[in-house]
Design a binder for these strands. Sequence first.
DNA 1: CGACCGATCGTCT
DNA 2: GACGATCGGTCGA
Length: 206
Amino acid sequence: MSKLPRSFYTRENVLEITEELLGKFLVTKYNGKITAGMITEAEAYGGVIDSASHAFKGRRTGRTEIMYLEGGRAYVYISYGIHHLFNVVTNEKDIPHAVLIRAIEPVEGIDLMLKRRKKKQPDYTLSSGPGSMSVAMGIKVYDTGTDLLGDKIWIEDRGIKIPQKKILRTIRIGVENSGKDAHLNYRYIIADNPWITRSSFNRIKE
DNA sequence: CGACCGATCGTCT
DNA sequence: GACGATCGGTCGA
């Protein structure tokens, strides 16, 4: 049960970091109330050379500026005008790598997650999918830039190691028109965990 | 269960 | 002025 140190995030291999984030625990604390879940699905975004990244070709705007900070911060932005998508910034300052957290398995504060999602009973849609996950955890776009070594949003290692053979790599979602890198296997999934995006789970079942 | 579609608005061109 | 790193509802088979 230890908070991931800065050195976890500042490494240069974003694929390695994405894979290692599976099985780690994302925790938020708002108004003293904790919600937490185990990361089950995440996507790597490779910065300036990745045509699917917001920072492709070194694009710097008010929104993407966060990605150029030192690793270990939250990059949150709005998608489709509705959804707040939570990313972890990685690598050193000026290298805009990021990992999109797409799904978690709820562990703590499930009552609060249900309230935020306006649901009565937990089901696999509670926190599977980046927009739903953010709602369940209470993460909003104004959390962008939050230091993950602070006491508001952080990621913990609770001693769980996902075996290599249970990790599935596949293409990222929603980037099919993003050019040369649309086909890269940059999405990492815990294959036997039902708390992942529904379409993925159905596909894995065969 | 898969395909389609509307919602909704900040960001970038 | 167009378009998403999406979601949830509906429709048809």
